[in-house]
Write a protein that binds this DNA or RNA. Structure first.
Lengths: 347, 347
DNA sequence: GGATGAAAGGAAAACGTTTTCCGTATTTTG
DNA sequence: CAAAATACGGAAAACGTTTTCCTTTCATCC
């Protein structure tokens, strides 16, 4: 019926010019009391709210920031969004989000569309570097989260190498010998996780086998379980690319008659809230998902405020081991390798 | 450095007018081959993409839809968003989302800001009806999801009464006598769930006690557990407002030495994916979260396409019981009440 | 009490599009 | 081949703001 009132309507009703109304709204200039009153009255009566689109056109600012995540079904990402959302709100910004659903082609398309509607982008993506250049070419401030970007573009990541290394040390300390890593190669941190685990385990002379998962999801954790469990020699421990895989894995392992942690230890990465409620509770590494979103958003706002991206650089969050019940000492631990024998305390 | 190319740049480079370029882009008119070629070449060379804001100004369409959810940390809502997102994408729309974090004041503010940037809104909210009017006054198509809205405004809900009733019947059939409902009064479906459960249980002469939870979260499920479990008489079964509460509840029940389902049955509502991986696996009612988002979005698009909201009305999804392992027959079932004795088959 | 300056308010251009209306070139028709 | 119809392309207004100048008003100062 009645159309939205415009600034023109307000100006007419208040008997002033539209410029005056605009300046009043943005408080970019002072006015005499009667003028202020008239404008306020007109705004109140018309229930006027300025049109953010029109404002954006001229200011070039949209008041929104975009976040692209890979899978909203993964609590790691929802925690991240929650953190990002909080900081965005504190700055008076809206959050626009896209779920790229692990689809690279779609991702680029969505980001392209999104980029014109936002003042900046947080992308949490496994795209190759050459595609990153195209994102940067969009001309908006960008922060890459969950991975380290090339020099000059701000990013925030988790020390994936350290995370994997501390898992390795735990497993070694507990006497695990034959270890499987359920990797997800397309993911950026996968390489570092693999490397951390491998270097740790090799230095202690333990064996590492890699299996590949097609998606970092519950369903894939379930699917891959039987192939791991049914191989000639069951591994002592399984390290998963993330908690989703680990939880799926544990679910079917149980149904296959494997008891965790007695027969096999399982460890995840991410520390999603549900890991506390599986059976057994999942040992994992906390990567501060929520903080990841917060810090990414802070880096983004520094850019939006005009700071040079090159001066911002990278940030790295420290992982923290979360011991729960899906890992346990092996019954008869191996003797430690010779070169470390001096450190051994108990026979 | 170099600013984004505008339609003016394209027109200049192609040697045509901006009107021509615009019409070419929107394919609202045919052109001769040489003109088309020139425009295409210019667009390609400049890497021109039209500015959606400017377009929105004149067309009045933004190409985005907004979804307001209560808590992105709850998988029920993320599933809903996933469903909504899929349909939105199919229609070539972006999804803008806000997490209201269960905060009503914030919700209204966020929706107000959002409403100018989108062509329609899906709101999944526990706001009172008088506030709903203010949302409708925003002048955008709205669909309320997860609850039934007053006549004339489209909404999509789950049959909460039926969901609770079928839980009641299950528990009765399994011989539970003393039942607790962990309710969350601020939520809209809570009333119906309570009523369904109550009417069912009363008709079979079973007792129902209500406990109140402060938030529908894992943490609250954990907190409330001890008061329920430690009361003079432990209940036979606990029905939770949602799966999050149920999962939290089961977690601490276990640590308090209660074994589920032997000592106590627990049932949730929502059927979030993680319910399959708790110990024991959670018996629950599936409410088609993803479909909820899809249908809500479909209703929204029908409005955006111009259909009269009053002609759209409500839609109700059917719940479905998902039997898993957190409920079990009581050791010695009660005799069925007299008036139903004829139906009993086994002694 | 007139010159000086500051403060208050307005006119108009701009942002990047779409769309309506009109003129011209080209084809079709009788 | 002239006339009528059609196809093609452009000029300009519009969308709802912000912002950059101006102009006017008024208090201040000597």
């Amino acid at each position: 019926m009645k159309n939205k009132p415009t600034i023109r309507d307000v100006a007419a009703k208040a008997g002033v010019s539209i410029a005056t109304v605009s300046k009043f709204i943005n408080s970019t200039q002072r006015f005499t009391a009667p003028v202020e009153r008239k404008i306020q009255a007109a705004i109140a009566e018309l229930e006027y709210h300025s049109n953010p689109l029109a404002r954006s056109m001229i200011t070039g600012k949209t008041g929104s920031v975009g976040v692209a995540i890979l899978d909203i079904g993964n609590p790691h990402f929802t925690s991240m969004v929650k953190g990002a959302n909080r900081i965005a709100l504190e700055h008076g910004y809206n959050l626009l989000f896209v779920d790229t659903e692990e689809n690279q082609a779609r991702e680029e398309e969505l980001l392209g569309a999104l980029s014109r509607r936002v003042d900046g982008l947080i992308v949490s993506s496994r795209m190759p570097e050459e595609q990153m250049d195209r994102i940067l070419a969009l001309g908006k401030p960008v922060v890459f989260s969950g991975r380290l970007a090339p020099a000059g573009v701000p990013s925030i990541g988790i020390d994936a190498y350290a995370a994997a290394y501390m898992i390795g040390e735990l497993l070694v300390k507990q006497g695990h010998r034959d270890i499987v890593y359920l990797g997800f190669a397309p993911a950026r941190p996968d390489t570092e996780r693999m490397r951390g685990l491998k270097e740790c385990l090799e230095s202690y002379g333990r064996s590492l086998t890699r299996y590949e998962v097609r998606e970092p999801t519950l369903a894939e954790g379930e699917r891959v379980c039987s192939s791991v469990v049914l191989r000639k020699e069951k591994p002592d421990a399984v390290v998963c690319y993330n908690d989703m895989i680990a939880i799926g894995f544990m679910g079917v392992a149980k149904s296959l008659g494997i008891s965790i942690p007695e027969d096999m230890s399982v460890v995840g990465i991410d520390n999603i809230p549900f890991g506390r409620f599986t059976s057994p509770a999942l040992t994992t590494v906390d990567i501060q998902s929520e903080r990841l979103g917060e810090e990414a958003m802070r880096l983004l706002f520094r850019q939006i405020a005009g700071q040079n991206p090159a001066d911002i650089g990278h940030q790295m969050l420290e992982p923290r081991l979360v011991m729960r019940d899906s890992t346990a000492m092996r019954a008869q631990p191996l003797p430690l390798p010779a070169e470390r024998a001096s450190r051994k305390k108990v026979p």
